[in-house]
Design a binder for these strands. Sequence first.
DNA 1: CAGTGGTCTAGACCACATA
DNA 2: ATGTGGTCTAGACCACTGA
Lengths: 274, 274
Amino acid sequence: MQPVGLSGARIIAPRGRDAISTEAETIAAGDAQAGQKPAASLHQRILGEIRERILTGEWPPGHRIPFEHELAASYGCSRMTVNKALSQLAATGLIERRRKSGSFVRRPASQSAVLEIRDIGEEVRDLGLAYRFEIAARARRKATIADRERLDLAAPGPVLVLTCQHFAGARPFCLEERLINLAAVPEAAEADFFEEAPGPWLLHRVPWSSAEHRITAAAAEGPAAQALRLAPGTPCIVVERRTWSAEQTVTHVRLTYPGDTHALVARFGPGGGG
Amino acid sequence: MQPVGLSGARIIAPRGRDAISTEAETIAAGDAQAGQKPAASLHQRILGEIRERILTGEWPPGHRIPFEHELAASYGCSRMTVNKALSQLAATGLIERRRKSGSFVRRPASQSAVLEIRDIGEEVRDLGLAYRFEIAARARRKATIADRERLDLAAPGPVLVLTCQHFAGARPFCLEERLINLAAVPEAAEADFFEEAPGPWLLHRVPWSSAEHRITAAAAEGPAAQALRLAPGTPCIVVERRTWSAEQTVTHVRLTYPGDTHALVARFGPGGGG
DNA sequence: CAGTGGTCTAGACCACATA
DNA sequence: ATGTGGTCTAGACCACTGA
């Protein structure tokens, strides 16, 4: 963690990048990234060194980072290379760039966490348990008012209602209550969801999607409690997800996990990206 | 949403980018981004048009995107400009790049959600309610084994233990149980947390941080139930966060929210970054 | 008005994976 | 061996914006 003087560590690069490669990597070795990554490319190294200064507090929030042309001179590289590093830092939220003024270290406004909602089957298997699922109920109907609300539909249309139980070994792992917009995914009407659970089935068929998640806690009640084999009143994590694809709502799913067994874990590298 | 033929929309750019600017923007107008953003810069426009093809399913997962030099020729720009767009698409996880093979549309493997854990005070005020907090307990002690586990500390050291109640109007909003590593933040020992709650206080003093979040559901018990004025057994969302700064654990906090009142909401643009 | 970041170019060399 | 993406350059013009 000893600092490499930014203005001090001047690297001479007569032409091309290979001229600096050996020397630069020697200097960078086990430094910028706290000894983790070799930081192969120059812009990566620049990024790492600046990030380190911010993370250690050497450059506190509000501090003005050297101008692009200054950094370019310091590192003996072109401005584009510096720009690539700074742009990425700005994209991840670590710095803020203002024309005419320069680039500044941002104050971390809010904590954000990147939650990865993985495939349930994979998750269970990763725990070293046998995975199994079961379609407990299946119905096709014209969207009720409640359905339309869940799917954010303007007009009523055909929907598929599914209840699916996921098991880890012999024990229930998760209860899935799903609504599929058949206007968006007509093929779902004929799917049997025997090989593939509805989640992965959709994931493999619907091109790309954005989603909105809502996480709450609720007490297990009646049928849900029975499906999860929990005493009524047991606290559960409920994850509700609404998925869009190309401006159309595809599905709404409510996943209920026993709260004492299950936890959602999220890591956060300052900015969510890098 | 009508497709602009990628190979068809050839734009002649004799030299400099201004030569294409008017023409290009006319072509791009209200097209690539579904008529939302002007897509000022060329690499942004390229990115948008490719993303649109992926999102609509025109280019399904596994599809090979035109090579950089092909796109460069199509758009009549340099390879770097195309590269910028493709790199960004790769960074957000929409495509995957392989040397020698090309760039491919990725199959969305897992849903990831960006959870924004906001400042509690701000959150309450945004709801239009009066915010107030209260330090209910405060103690300084040598880290117990449990403390060391929560803070991931190798050796015992001084810690500050805080219990803080957050109110929305007259009603309890959240219970905060916090542990601060005084080796990392010695100033905390003298802080009174009268003006500023421990969360923002740390946020303003500790440079930058990464964190690990753990979200579970639990039943309100004894003192916690009393603090939140809940009947024992009421399901609650529990958010635990461990925060590092420069290789040192700074704090561990457990936030307990009444589960029926509170929900964590996360939006997700495919990839988390964009 | 001066200076910053934003963008773009027309080359170039390299590592690397694949055919 | 071939061709891809990865990286970098040494310029350039522009828009914006703060002094």
